[in-house]
Design a protein around this nucleic acid. Structure first.
Lengths: 231, 231
DNA sequence: TATCATTAATGACATATATCATAATATATA
DNA sequence: TATATATTATGATATATGTCATTAATGATA
């Protein structure tokens, strides 16, 4: 069942003040006409490895995961995007096909802006080009930094990272509903599902967190940060 | 001792046909006047974490490593750049300070182009902007892909990756002189130095490679590729 | 509601990897 | 050249992590 939602106008969009802030009213109008908004239920695919790339995608509401299916058909999650994030990686500017898949992990609304229009504005609006480039660069570098931060740590440090990531970065609250399964956490931080569960239990017994299924509350953020910092 | 080298002209530069191909003769002349070329001996630092960023850097000759010093003062290598590569990550467009350090791992000549000039051309030359963006995006995504490829494999797969990386990607020859120590290999693929040495010995005993100190020859590339693919 | 499938949880065990110790080389430096 | 220092090499051992097995809990579906 498709849920209807009010299609927003670009000039009122939260994203405008970010990557699109240097577009003129005229340019925004062009985007407004050509853009598409689409609603995805939790679990639905937004795009798959190999799909043609024709849009710049950003997330209006919800949460999505960017992932790759390995040869052994295991999935590896590369990053999680939150509202106002550009979804995907820079390859949309250097590839014609998606090299990763994207799936909603919460009900989400994704906005698709034709890539040719973005490219046209990069060509014709220098101020927009520079600003857009800076913003997009930051996103890309943050993915690299995250991958390094995770992989230079061991299990406890990685789980601490995930807890801090969701509580601080995604939800801004010490209490939150983990939107992904333990298996997906494992796919995100390169460890086995059992060990994700085990370390979470360990943290619970240690009064670092409280767990009731997907409901998690961070009880001792200072100590959790220390565990993260020490690796 | 500083070695003199013939300062090259941008219009003859190998890099021109890559990222700078859409600049006019006039624009190239501006870059040519403002750019700096610098020679670094193997082991010399090109820049350090925290340095002000004022240049777009690319490698004319040699080989350099981009790395981060962890809290425990261990070094973690993020990527290795070869001639014609843009050095560094996109953060030069979104940060004012370097977030990683760069050191020459072979005698190298680095060319520094003032970043403000690049930004000016992005603003004023749309065709250049798009092309430059596409090229730089590919570099960034390739770093992400590499990190994933390495970290989703275990030791044997990672060593296979390194051997294939140097023989195919860097030197284009089955016989090459490994430019980094076993310790640096370990820092590049997140494993202990002893295990790097151990797996290399194992590959030697298995007739996959021949080793004499830093001189390595890949004897059975097909089997090595299989080891890499299977992880 | 009853049934089935998925997820979460935990223990026992196997395996992969790191660490420590020691020696042999190689490389840099005085 | 001699000496110190770092690198390479290998074995023994400790530790971290993954895998397998089993059960409980949860959620989906008929």
């Amino acid at each position: 069942m498709e849920l209807a939602h009010k299609v927003s106008n670009c000039k009122d969009c939260i994203y405008r003040s970010w990557a699109f802030k240097n577009l003129s009213a005229e340019e925004l109008k062009v985007i407004n006409v050509k853009k598409t908004e689409k609603f995805y239920r939790k679990g639905e695919n937004i795009c798959l490895e190999g799909d043609e790339i024709s849009s710049f995608m950003y997330l209006q509401t919800g949460l999505v995961k960017l992932f790759k299916t390995e040869l052994n058909s295991k999935e590896h999650i590369i990053s999680i995007a939150k509202p106002k994030d550009f979804i995907g990686l820079l390859s949309i500017f250097s590839n014609t096909k998606q090299i990763y898949s994207i799936t909603a992990i919460e009900d989400s609304i994704v906005c698709f802006v034709n890539l040719e229009i973005i490219k046209k504005f990069i060509k014709t609006n220098g101020i927009f080009a520079i600003d857009f480039f800076e913003k997009i660069s930051a996103v890309s570098d943050s993915v690299i930094k995250t991958r390094i931060d995770i992989n230079t740590r061991q299990l406890r440090g990685r789980i601490a990272y995930i807890l801090l990531f969701f509580s601080k970065h995604i939800y801004g609250s010490s209490k939150f509903n983990l939107p992904i399964s333990r298996k997906e956490v494992a796919e995100l931080i390169d460890m086995s599902t059992e060990n994700v569960i085990r370390v979470l239990s360990e943290f619970r017994k240690d009064n670092l967190i409280q767990i009731e299924g997907k409901n998690i509350e961070v009880l001792d953020i200072k100590r959790l940060e220390k565990i993260y910092e020490l690796g």
